[in-house]
């Protein structure tokens, strides 16, 4: 049985965290730790990569595995290099929605296309939270943010469906309310050979909550009631893709063997 004391002694570098009260990032840290512990993989075989943003603070500095804190939007590019250099590593990228789809959207598409064997956990709170709540590619239509005070005139990007169409091996979407499903999904994603992508809807009480007039408890209730497996569009949760495909580093090794002859 995993207890808080066990997690604090074995997996967390330092506490208290810098997250706001009620932020979902702490819950996602909890989920990643529990998934790694359930799989019983050595911490030395895991590497975490993060970019810039609130959610980039989840692996670095709190998660006690080797971690790489990189430039804005580029964690997937760094992680691809890490995986190609050492294919034995389980590389986990934790990135925000602005980081993964706004600044580094092309890296996400091309990592999914080339099917490199990394795991991307995208924490989606619908805006750029660290810089003050500006509009992001994932902000829903007519949602208020700091830079769209009369509502967002544009439409939001359904990231999971885009990544699925780009050719990822595993795609799932959960919220911070669905903790057990999220942990099981992270376990599956880490063990997946190809590119795996998990989108986690997370509550941001400081900016998203202020704009929606909700506190974090109401937002968790909103996740529970509105986000369902039989819903449509961005409110649909669950596993979208779970297939086996040839992986990039394996194909590279095959090519090297072929060229050597």
């Amino acid at each position: 049985m995993i207890t808080s004391r066990y997690i604090k002694e074995n997996y967390v570098r330092r506490l208290p965290s810098a997250f706001c009260p009620g932020c979902g990032d702490g819950q996602i840290l909890n989920a990643i730790i529990r998934a790694i512990d359930h799989l019983k993989i050595d911490r030395k075989d895991v590497a975490a990569v993060s970019g810039i943003g609130c959610s980039a603070w989840i692996p670095s500095p709190y998660l006690r595995v080797d971690s790489l804190h990189t430039t804005h939007g580029r964690p997937i590019a760094f992680a691809t290099g890490l995986k190609v250099a050492n294919p034995r590593l389980k590389v986990i990228v934790v990135s925000g929605d602005g980081d993964a789809t706004g600044i580094g959207g092309n890296h996400l598409l091309h990592a999914a296309r080339s099917n490199v064997g990394i795991t991307v956990i995208m924490v989606n709170n619908g805006l750029y939270a660290m810089t003050g709540g500006q509009v992001a590619p994932t902000t829903p239509h007519e949602a208020k943010t700091t830079t769209t005070p009369y509502g967002n005139p544009a439409f939001s990007l359904d990231v999971s469906r885009v990544v699925a169409a780009a050719g990822a091996s595993y795609v799932a979407r959960w919220t911070t309310w669905h903790m057990n499903q999220l942990i099981r999904s992270i376990e599956k994603a880490i063990m997946k050979k190809g590119f795996s992508f998990i989108e986690v809807l997370s509550q941001c009480p400081t900016y998203e909550g202020r704009m929606l007039n909700m506190d974090h408890i109401q937002m968790l209730e909103w996740f529970k009631n509105k986000f369902r497996e039989d819903a449509d569009g961005i409110y649909k949760i669950g596993e979208f893709v779970d297939i086996e495909k040839p992986e990039l580093t394996e194909e590279l090794e095959k090519m090297i063997e072929r060229v050597k002859k």
Binding site: M1, T3, S4, R5, I7, K8, V12, L15, P16, S17, F19, G22, C23, G24, D25, G26, Q27, L29, N30, R34, M179, N180
Partner: peptide, 17 residues
């Protein structure tokens, strides 16, 4: 049930069985 431990973002609560 340890739901409080599972959902706590700050690892601040622990149930001893």
């Amino acid at each position: 049930c340890r739901l409080c431990e599972l959902y706590c973002p700050d690892f601040a609560i622990e149930v001893v069985q």
